[in-house]
Design a binder for these strands. Structure first.
Lengths: 238, 238
DNA sequence: CGATGACCCTTGGAGCCCCAACTTTGCGGC
DNA sequence: GCCGCAAAGTTGGGGCTCCAAGGGTCATCG
């Protein structure tokens, strides 16, 4: 609005508006850096920064050598967007930085991928994958239950030090490019009631997360968080 | 790890590690751009970009004229961080861009701030505020129920076109600097069951969101989302 | 007709610079 | 001992440039 605020914001707001009101449909190309500098009469830095901001918001995606395109979301009802840091260390790190201790149990086992898992990991059903259970505890009470599935070839060795999924994939020459998460609340299963020590009537937040390397899924996990116990809090710097 | 990947990532990862393992406690200063270039032997651009990435992740916060500092989260259990776009248009825009129609009802009324609201908006109890109800409908079924509270002086006029909160505040000379959200799941209240047409036994996701302008809250809202109906989906570009 | 390669464009990393606005610090004077 | 002011340091906006890696297109050659 005001002519005083950053010029890159003018570009961001104009493109965002076009995406929001449907002038730019999913898949449509965004003008390149060079074109933006001409169109909006701004420097290359401002044009570049505008594209970076829009990409960080998840509205557009950049493809090297090709251009930026309006992003299409895989699900019909994306309500809002969020962000986990890493898997699973950061959760613990968050708490630790506040002087609280967090511990976790985990164990791996080979298992057969059912039809649902096969769909999520794009495998044939009855292929063997590795299932790893994690239980996070903060001062005794379980806070989070996670079950991770990976194709056998990527599974962590028993002796291997605990390393993040992204770091482990890296040693296989695989670069994780995207994380897709889908969230819903639901009634807990009996084993979850047991593992999380849930009182009667409490629902859970269920996150289904998949790590992608290009167009290939390399890990998928179910994260279950008790509805009564957690309290997500996020301050977003504007 | 590998010496081939971007140098700014070396800086990001090293600082992130220090924050995660507690070497850098909340409030601790991060080296300045000039110091980072010397310490990591990188250019100014890389140092600057590293700080921007860490700030975007919410791990650090920059204060003009002073420096960057490790951010402390207001709540003891931040499980993950997320991000809404705007209020409330983007949700509708997301759906519209996929060719689905979304409508909303809304109405405003003056009301007295109870003790809870007074705490959230930092007002005296019994001050009058404006309460605005929003109901979002996607193809008939209600998808989201929001109740927003603002001090009277900021309330939108009846004639005023629908504009985002951030834009409205701007005309009052107020710049929204931060959005704080706290989320939990809970049993719906009777009026919510009614408004959202909830089947028996379905829980809701309750988001308490506050817009801040500096150290002053300018709006607070309760957003209620049916646990069975929604499906958050977010792909995070890495 | 089909394959191959050259050429142009685009992204993303990286470097360096200038400047306004703001904070912090320390010095000098009262 | 305290106040005020100037100098130094810091962020954040903006500009310009170079380059590697990769996508697209089109013409040329077999």
């Amino acid at each position: 609005m005001a002519t005083s605020d950053p010029v890159y914001l003018r570009v961001v707001e104009d493109i965002r508006r076009q995406i929001n009101d449907g002038s730019l449909l999913p898949g449509a190309p965004i003008p390149s850096r060079a074109q933006l500098t001409r169109k909006y009469q701004v420097g290359e830095t401002a044009a570049r920064h505008a594209l970076r901001v829009l990409a960080a918001e998840g509205l557009i995606i950049g493809r090297v050598g090709s251009g930026h395109y309006v992003r299409q979301h895989p699900d019909p009802t994306p309500l809002h967007r969020w962000r986990f840091l890493d898997h699973p260390a950061p959760f613990a790190a968050d708490l630790q930085s506040q002087g609280r201790r967090v511990t976790w149990d985990w164990h791996s086992e080979p298992t057969e991928a059912g039809p649902d898992l096969a769909r999520r990991l794009r495998l044939d059903p009855s292929t063997t994958v590795t299932r790893t259970h994690y239980v996070f505890r903060g001062e005794g009470k379980p806070l989070q239950l996670a079950t991770s599935y990976e194709p056998l070839e990527f599974a962590p060795h028993a002796e291997e030090e605990r390393r993040s999924l992204v770091a482990r994939m890296y040693t296989h020459g695989i670069k994780v490019t995207e994380i897709v998460e889908s969230v819903r609340t639901r009634v807990p299963r009996p084993d979850e009631i047991d593992a999380l020590d849930l009182p009667a009537g409490v629902h859970v937040l269920h996150v289904e997360r998949t790590h992608w390397a290009g167009d290939r899924p390399v890990e998928t996990s179910d994260i279950v968080i008790p509805g009564d116990r957690f309290r997500v809090m996020y301050s977003m710097p504007l």
